[in-house]
């Protein structure tokens, strides 16, 4: 069996998607009216220093050449060094991306565990008070700015009640005490048997994850509700009810069983968007994730760092799509047959 049709096509599409994404980001970085050299040398630097830095950054080259050189570097697995800090972008990403993975994973878990049951209950009680109440919960999640909600959550649960740990990934006593393995502190602390650090990390991640997860929950519950409503109006549901099947079985086995594929897409997309990094949540909770990293790099026109971050985000989207496709096969017989 040749591998090329099975893997060649997805690989080519990954390459094209990534190149397109990089090209757009690259062009945006060049058209914004900010001089990248100033971010490196500062406002008071003499012209000789300015010019030398500009040449060192390759900004005297034509745009197409800058881009091709960059792509060639990426193809060799080199994301370059940050213009501003002079550090390898890959090293920075190894530090900030796991922080986002940690936050996003717990947030999406919360979003799914709360959002799916809420959606199902709302749909099965369509038009009744449960439905209205849960819809209000969803609308609040949709419409309240995350920045504000984050600050209020900190004020209430951290400052007033003292139930949650403060902003940041770890308490100051544990700062720098854990040698990274995966970079995800919750995992690393368990791997190293540091239960106190695990507890501290968990106490720090819960509040931002719940705030962030609330938004995913609002989206997931709304989508679950609408998928379920669609199924519950189908004739096979009526048949099942006429056969005397319990309502619980009708809802959870028959109707819910049929929305799983759609739901997986929704969850995968939600997770992907969380993995892009939530700038505002990260800012309020001082969470050193990829969202803050890309944003502050963009503001200082540190394009190597921005492009590096873009590559990671692009890869995350592509990977999650592939994972979702694989799961379809596992839960849906028709998809499995198609794939076979």
């Amino acid at each position: 069996m040749s591998l090329s049709p099975a893997f060649g096509r997805p690989l080519a599409s990954v390459a094209i998607t990534l190149t397109g994404l990089l090209l757009i980001t690259f062009v945006i970085g060049r058209v914004i009216p900010v001089d990248p050299v100033l971010a490196v040398v500062g406002d008071h630097a003499p012209p000789a220093v300015y010019e030398a830095t500009r040449q060192k950054m390759g900004l005297d080259q034509p745009l197409w050449k800058q881009f091709t050189l960059y792509i060639a570097e990426i193809a060799h697995g080199n994301l370059g060094t940050s213009f501003v800090t002079g550090r390898p972008v890959l090293e920075d990403l190894e530090r900030v991306f796991p922080a986002t993975v940690e936050l996003a994973t717990i947030a999406v878990l919360f979003g799914v565990l709360a959002g799916v049951p809420i959606g199902v209950v709302a749909a099965s009680h369509h038009g009744r008070w449960q439905d209205h109440l849960l819809r209000v919960v969803g609308i609040v999640g949709y419409s309240v700015p995350v920045f504000w909600l984050g600050l209020i959550a900190l004020l209430v649960f951290y400052a007033k009640l003292g139930w949650s740990a403060g902003p940041g990934r770890l308490g100051i006593a544990y700062d720098g005490m854990i040698e990274p393995i995966t970079g995800v502190i919750l995992v690393d602390s368990l791997l190293r048997g540091e239960l106190a650090i695990f507890r501290d990390a968990l106490a720090h991640v819960l509040l931002p994850a719940v705030v962030l997860g609330y938004f995913s929950m609002a989206y997931i519950s709304r989508m679950t509700r609408s998928f379920m409503l669609d199924q519950l109006q189908q004739e096979y549901i009526t048949t099942a009810r006429v056969k005397g099947m319990s309502e619980r079985r009708v809802v959870w086995t028959h109707a819910f069983g049929n929305i799983r594929v759609q739901l997986i897409t929704v969850i995968a997309l939600t997770y992907a968007s969380l993995l892009e990094g939530a700038v505002l949540t990260e800012t309020v909770f001082a969470w050193p994730g990829i969202g803050q990293y890309i944003t502050s790099s963009l503001l200082s026109v540190d394009m190597n760092a921005v492009l590096g971050g873009t590559v990671v985000v692009g890869l995350v989207f592509i990977m999650l799509n592939l994972v979702a496709d694989t799961i379809y096969g596992l839960v849906d017989v028709r998809a499995r047959r198609l794939q076979a």
């Binding site: 600050l151 900190l154 004020l155 951290y158 400052a159 403060g166 902003p167 940041g168 100051i172 800012t283 309020v284 909770f285 001082a286 050193p288 803050q292």
Partner: peptide, 11 residues
């Protein structure tokens, strides 16, 4: 510690 948000610094 890099705490960008002043309101967070205050808390």
């Amino acid at each position: 510690r890099h705490i960008k948000e002043a309101a967070t610094q205050k808390l």
